[in-house]
Amino acid sequence: MIQILVADDDQHIRELISLYLENQGFKIIKAADGEEAWAKMEEFRIDLAVVDIMMPFKDGWELTKEIKEYFDIPVLMVTARGESHDKLKGFDIGTDDYVVKPFDPQEMVARVKALLRRYRVEANNVIYMGNIKLDRTKLEMSAGETSEQLPLKEFELLFTLVSSPGKIFTRDQLIQLIWGYDYEGDERTVDVHIKRLRERLNHMKNVGMEIKTIRGLGYRAEGC
């Protein structure tokens, strides 16, 4: 089972993050400050760390630097600070992604899953929606007797949408989750990949789901 460290001195935030991640089948190791978080890193096999910046004894900057020095795992920073220089500092010390409070817990879960995929840490390998089955180990989409192997980015895009049915993802969110912060292209890349996925879904029979365009907002997966 994938084990995730959640380090935040705010008990409410710590429990909220833990609840949503536990509902996805992850095992959560909790820490209320930076020193406790480092002790947990040494005690448990941690696959990903969710780290708050403003913690007592050892802040998130120092904790992240130490994690990145000794462990090859992704770090997701959660903080009340939204200024660009704080984000840049986080990325400079090795942070893989960044969520600003207040945040959408479902988006946070999606970011965690995206980081695990980027580091090739296996989570839920198979998910379903309607009659569609997505198998991450094979990058395969199937419905009934029909199956098709998808290009990596198309599969990750569809997997992200199906992992949170009914949730609207903006193009910018999808770019960050699938292509990463350092992607130099534009949002039209998402539209192109969505078009290809819709064409693939249309070629399959009785899929029982569709990718909906929410005008002015983005995309979501829903049953039909």
Score class of each variant (00 low, 15 high):
Tyr98Cys: 04
Asn124Ser: 13
Arg14Ile: 02
Ile28Pro: 05
Met108Lys: 00
Leu201Tyr: 01
Asp104Phe: 10
Leu76Met: 05
Asp86Leu: 01
His85Leu: 13
Ile29Asn: 03
Asp72Phe: 09
Asp104Asn: 12
Trp179Arg: 14
Lys89Met: 05
Lys133Thr: 10
Tyr219Phe: 14
Val75Trp: 10
Met54Gln: 06
Tyr98Thr: 00
Arg14Gln: 09
Trp179Met: 12
Gly34Glu: 04
Met209Val: 03
Asp47Gly: 09
Asp59Cys: 00
Ser147Lys: 15
Glu83Ala: 14
Arg120Ile: 07
Gly25Met: 02
Arg215Ser: 14
Gly223Pro: 00
Val99Arg: 04
Leu158Gly: 03
Leu158Arg: 01
Ile13Tyr: 12
Asp104Met: 05
Lys40Ser: 09
Leu152Cys: 14
Arg118Gln: 13
Gly144Tyr: 04
Phe44Pro: 09
Glu36Ala: 11
Tyr183Cys: 12
Ile175Val: 09
Arg45Pro: 15
Ile17Asn: 08
Ser142Asn: 08
Glu62Val: 02
Met77His: 06
Lys65Phe: 01
Ala37Ser: 12
Met55Val: 01
Leu157Asp: 03
Pro74Val: 03
Lys89Thr: 10
Ser163Arg: 07
Arg188Gln: 08
Leu201Met: 10
Phe44Asn: 07
Asp47Ser: 06
Asp72Trp: 09
Lys167Phe: 08
Ile132Gln: 04
Ser142Lys: 03
Leu16Asn: 14
Ile214Pro: 09
Arg198Phe: 00
Pro56Asn: 03
Leu201Asn: 00
Asn131Cys: 11
Lys138Leu: 14
Leu16Met: 14
Asn131Trp: 06
Tyr70Ala: 08
Glu145Leu: 15
Asp97Val: 03
Arg200Leu: 07
Glu122Thr: 13
Lys65Arg: 10
His193Gly: 08
Gln11Ser: 06
Glu187Met: 14
Ile46Ala: 01
Pro56Cys: 05
Leu116Ser: 01
Leu150Ser: 00
Glu184Gly: 06
Met55Tyr: 07
Glu35Cys: 10
Glu66Ser: 11
Asp182Thr: 07
Leu48Tyr: 07
Glu148Gly: 02
Gly82Glu: 06
Phe71Glu: 08
Val192Ser: 13
Val192Gln: 10
Met141Lys: 00
Ile175Gln: 04
Asp33Val: 01
Val112Asp: 08
Thr146Phe: 12
Thr189Glu: 13
Glu36Met: 10
Glu83Cys: 13
Leu158Ile: 05
Thr189Arg: 11
Ile214Ser: 08
Leu197Ala: 04
Leu63Gln: 00
Ile214Ala: 14
